[in-house]
């Protein structure tokens, strides 16, 4: 029941949105942050987001940089709220689980840097899957 009449392949148009100057900057920043190629980020975005969200991504990203994850350094490093609420790559519950996992790791004595690296890898997997 979830199929539509007149469905069309939107990937080309979504890609057109993503290659404008502002979007391109944002995509490259996110790619750097995650440590993957920009095309992989674009692919994840095209697969997941609808067109108006794609158009709005740069302003959401800016807002996220300003507002998200205030207070906690670990959350800021991982981008807990940034990648779930502001740029909804991962559902919020799953992101919460990932973040608390990293915190548990730190609590159990793992060095902070190592825990964050592991957490980042998990988030990257969640984003790219």
């Amino acid at each position: 029941m979830t199929t539509y009449l007149y469905e069309k392949d939107l990937r080309q148009m979504k890609y057109n949105i993503l290659i404008s100057t502002r979007h391109d900057l944002m995509v490259r920043e996110i790619a750097d942050r995650l440590g993957v190629g920009p095309n992989q980020v674009r692919l994840a975005m095209i697969r997941r987001f609808d067109m108006s969200l794609l158009e709005n991504l740069p302003s959401r990203y800016e807002q996220g940089q300003k507002m998200a994850d205030a207070g906690s350094r670990v959350a800021k490093e991982l981008g807990c709220e940034l990648f779930s609420r502001f740029i909804p790559f991962v559902e919020e519950e799953r992101m919460q689980a990932l973040c608390s996992e990293v915190r548990d790791m730190i609590d159990t004595g793992l060095p902070e840097e190592e825990a964050i690296t592991t957490g980042k890898r998990r988030i990257r997997e969640a984003i790219l899957q």
Binding site: T21, R22, S52, L53, E55, N56, P58, S59, R60
Partner: peptide
Amino acid sequence: IDITVRTPSIMNIEACTH
């Protein structure tokens, strides 16, 4: 040489629909 426009409707349509 280079120009990018960000219009208000982008944000508002997105906020509205989601």
